[in-house]
Design a binder for these strands. Sequence first.
DNA 1: CGAATTTCTCTCGCTGAGCGAGATAGTATC
DNA 2: GATACTATCTCGCTCAGCGAGAGAAATTCG
Lengths: 163, 163
Amino acid sequence: MPPADHPRGTAPEEPGPGLDVVHQLRAVTVELDLLAADFARRNGLHPTDLRALIQLLDAARSGTAVTPGRLGAALGLNSAGTTSLIDRLERLGHVRRLRDPHDGRRVLLEVDERATALGRSFFGPLIDHVVGEVETMPPAELAAVRRFLAHVRTGIEEHREQG
Amino acid sequence: MPPADHPRGTAPEEPGPGLDVVHQLRAVTVELDLLAADFARRNGLHPTDLRALIQLLDAARSGTAVTPGRLGAALGLNSAGTTSLIDRLERLGHVRRLRDPHDGRRVLLEVDERATALGRSFFGPLIDHVVGEVETMPPAELAAVRRFLAHVRTGIEEHREQG
DNA sequence: CGAATTTCTCTCGCTGAGCGAGATAGTATC
DNA sequence: GATACTATCTCGCTCAGCGAGAGAAATTCG
């Protein structure tokens, strides 16, 4: 989030622990974005492609079937953009298109090993880093972090709904 | 980060508190990105423009002068892309170009009120939400959250440096 | 059942963000 | 004052993503 210089309107804008945490959080997301963009470039992907892979891997992990429609919606793309996104991923061998046998209009997206490997090569070390940290934390502190992150997420969701 | 299905290679991949926190963190960043993209669209901006405004506002807040070069580097754009980014922001009245009096090659970017207002209108409620939460937290828990976020950042930075 | 409607994906043509290459103008070094 | 360097901008191009709409399969309804 951007700085909030003048105490005007909505929040107590004095530099304090709250704002500081907000800044840290924003920095984390900005840096993760940059990291993802770098990685995508190095692997001949676009940032959107990487986000798509994340969605696909998450879905595969939770056993959910993914169709172009769902994927496009999750990424905020329209159908034309979604088609060309999937074309790219298919061309690179990360994804295969299969007709849904139960609904002939649908296409099911199947993730290739190579996509999982790519995802792991990117996020693996980072995951290790964070998991390592988490494992040294006292349970009470860990619980606090989780509550905090959950709270942030609900805040974001409320914010999005109001549009 | 994407899921890590098989315990292979780098990390203890069993579903556990560590991975769970990683997933929460990833979800936060994904949702923040989507929120930012929505907001950008509604305000006739591109996601990059919003990221640029965040950088500019941060710099203004900390009293740092921003030039096209710095901004482009912070966003991972080349000079041509940076120029057209600033053209867009200038056209929308968020930014003005001023020649640096001390170094005639440089351009200094001055942020307009309208940009600050825009930033606040976007992030304000979210900041309030998080700050509100932070203020109810016992100091020990708050400290844990800050340490955690700091740790994540250093992890990301190390990760980026190795390229 | 067959027609109308809806749902899902893809095609076509276009806009514009961002890239590579290089021009230009100002600064530092000798 | 020539040379090297730095910061920004210009030009031409590629391609991600959009709007509009076509086509095919499913659903609803007379």
